[in-house]
Design a binder for these strands. Structure first.
Lengths: 137, 137
DNA sequence: TTTTTAATTGAAAACAATTTTCACTAATTA
DNA sequence: TAATTAGTGAAAATTGTTTTCAATTAAAAA
């Protein structure tokens, strides 16, 4: 909310609620999921406002789109606009991770391909510890 | 085409042309782009057949969906159903690369997160050698 | 505090991408 | 060659997203 305000945006109910829902979610949510949850708190919110808030949060790098085999329309809140994600394929729980271990691989591919490599996306998929426990029962 | 036939699918004009266009493209194409190109060779082709052929090729792991910041509706032909891509952000030229250098990183993240990691997606973005040359003129 | 203003809103319409329906066509098999 | 049934294209339906616009409301000014 601070960041929105700092960038000249007004603090409104639809924005507050959309931000809160995204900030508290451990798994990526799409516009329609956010809308369903938001209506519980603020019945008159419009789906359009959710879309518009998502747009602004993405511009400000406060959320990022999450790409999965099933689709790419969900967003997760993150602090940096960066792209290393670890996603649970059971429950959707999503974590960020750091890793500069890629430099060597990137250097090798760069050499072999003659590309100048500028950016990378890395996503790991697996089963989180909660879902591992549930599975073993 | 062989693989389609081996899986019990008929060899039809719309399929032949869709397959040919995808097989010869160096950059990912979406349904509508394929349709435009296909019409040049076979005017009466329908966009629906392109969608249906894409669906089957994806099932057979002959093509894969390419995820980019601008969108995720384009497909590239590949030999394995796997996910290491190198994409030119200027012209879209897309190459595959191998790399098991990730094992160490995956092991580390697995330990730190308590996830059992099963799969990964890695995409590198950069400028291909053709586009580097064009730029320097 | 009240007034003014301009950003923001929600409903409805418009648009875009994809899927479904269905009568017809054509690839394969007998 | 005839019979069968998968595959086709046009149109309609569906889904997801964006635009339009009059009304509302947050923030700035008085």
């Amino acid at each position: 909310m601070e960041c929105l305000q700092a960038n000249g945006y007004r603090l409104t109910n639809p924005r507050r609620i959309t931000v809160e829902i995204l900030a508290n979610s451990k798994r990526p949510l799409n516009a329609s999921e956010i809308y369903q949850l938001a209506k519980e708190q603020y019945a008159k919110i419009g789906l359009v406002s959710v879309y518009r808030t998502i747009e602004k949060l993405e511009e400000l790098n406060l959320i990022q789109r999450v790409h999965k085999p099933e689709g790419c329309h969900a967003y997760i809140a993150g602090f940096t606009g960066h792209q290393h994600l670890l996603i649970c394929t059971k429950c959707g729980k999503t974590e960020f991770f750091e890793g500069d271990d890629l430099q060597q691989l990137i250097a090798r591919v760069s050499l072999e391909s003659n590309f100048i490599i500028q950016d990378h996306w890395l996503t790991l998929f697996g089963i989180c510890s909660d879902c591992q426990q549930k599975q073993s029962h």
